[in-house]
């Protein structure tokens, strides 16, 4: 059963990471580019993607970073996680970025570069194109 933490309706291309994301330390708040050399999305911008990653980690102040990248027009269109964490949940809530939690199998089935449409109000929340 999927869990909608922040609702919304968007369409976009998946940027998938198998590493958790620490928004406070590793995402540039002006550009939305991942700055952590050890991260599998190093040097990739999250802007206008459907960002798929296992969960957020690190300080809850990271929620402000999510708000900042949205204010600087560098935020993902939506986020999809495997595990709910309060930093990403509150960050997406502040910034009004749709956020959905999906199970392990569905997470595994979504591939990088896939086109998805995403409507939290519909019964079929994630639609593959």
């Amino acid at each position: 059963m999927n869990k909608v933490l922040v609702s919304g309706k968007v369409e976009g291309i998946v940027l998938k990471s198998s590493d958790p994301i620490n928004f406070l330390g590793t995402v540039n708040k002006k550009t939305g580019i991942i700055s952590d050399k050890n991260h599998d999305l190093f040097e990739k911008p999250v802007k206008n993607t459907i960002l798929l990653f296992p969960s957020g980690i690190g300080s809850s102040v990271g929620a402000y970073t999510i708000y900042s990248i949205k204010s600087n027009d560098a935020a993902p269109l939506a986020m999809v996680c495997q595990k709910a964490d309060l930093t990403v949940a509150t960050g997406c809530a502040l910034a009004n970025i749709p956020l959905i939690i999906i199970n392990e199998e569905e997470f595994a089935s979504i591939k990088n570069g896939m086109k998805l449409s995403f409507d939290t109000e519909s019964s079929n929340q994630i639609h593959y194109q």
Partner: peptide, 14 residues
């Protein structure tokens, strides 16, 4: 709206 979004996201997560 933002405040409720935070409470709902926190509530659903917990």
């Amino acid at each position: 709206q933002m405040a409720y979004r935070i409470l709902v996201a926190t509530g659903e997560a917990t």
